[in-house]
């Protein structure tokens, strides 16, 4: 029993616990903690990542409107309380680890694209996402072009023709076209101790 305790923000979990449940080593989790501390104190100094802080890190702009960033934030915020805690951050990032099986990455992405949380990617959701992506670019495609992209995709993916994409159809698409999952792997996560090396000085643990 020790009286010496470090005060950690809500949602902090011990690196040893997180390492036992994710592909990360204890040292890597300590490095991720340094990244987390940086992100979670950039606007509001409370050790939790707020949406504005997440957007600031992604876009260098805390008020950027982006459907996909909103969805990623929502997926990371597993407790659905509007902030990303350290444990949520590590567990969610672990899905992006190069060693995490493809089926976990695929399932995460399906849920991210299932905007209404119905268990299906519906035509109107697909249309909304295509529209959102095109608004990030200056392609200026017409409504008819968006409709055509969505229609072609539905013809290709919705093989049982029920007007929506289920997880089986999604898996078939991913198997045929693995590049769709490319955002789901972050090579940085294998080098996180190099990217955020300051931990080396305060690490208490050898791998």
């Amino acid at each position: 029993f020790s009286l010496k305790r470090t005060k950690h923000p809500r949602g902090y979990e011990e690196p040893q616990v997180l390492a036992s449940e994710t592909p990360f080593t204890v040292n890597e989790i300590e490095a991720l903690h340094n990244l987390f501390k940086k992100l979670s104190t950039s606007i509001i100094n409370d050790g939790l990542i707020h949406k504005e802080e997440f957007l600031l890190a992604l876009f260098r702009n805390s008020s950027k409107q982006n459907l996909f960033a909103d969805r990623v934030f929502y997926m990371f915020d597993r407790k659905r309380n509007g902030v990303i805690e350290f444990g949520e951050f590590v567990r969610s990032l672990s899905i992006f680890h190069p060693h995490t099986p493809e089926h976990e990455k695929s399932s995460f992405m399906f849920k991210l694209y299932d905007l209404d949380g119905t268990g299906f990617i519906q035509r109107h959701e697909l249309k909304k996402m295509v529209g959102a992506l095109l608004s990030e670019t200056d392609l200026g495609l017409s409504e008819e072009s968006i409709e055509a992209i969505v229609e072609q995709t539905m013809v290709e993916v919705d093989t049982n023709k029920d007007g929506k994409i289920d997880e089986e159809e999604w898996k078939e698409l991913v198997a045929k076209n693995p590049s769709i999952l490319k955002n789901m792997t972050l090579p940085y996560l294998k080098e996180v101790t190099l990217a955020f090396p300051s931990f080396v000085l305060d690490s208490e643990v050898d791998d």
Binding site: L93, F96, M129, L133, N177, I180, V192
Partner: peptide, 26 residues
């Protein structure tokens, strides 16, 4: 390929909002 010839999911995957690599850039 032009965007119109692409699968919608290929197109969507180009969103900056899905590129979490940015979190690691200093």
């Amino acid at each position: 390929r032009t965007p119109v010839a692409m699968n919608a999911f290929e197109l969507i995957s180009k969103s900056k909002g899905l590129n979490l690599g940015s979190l690691f850039e200093k």
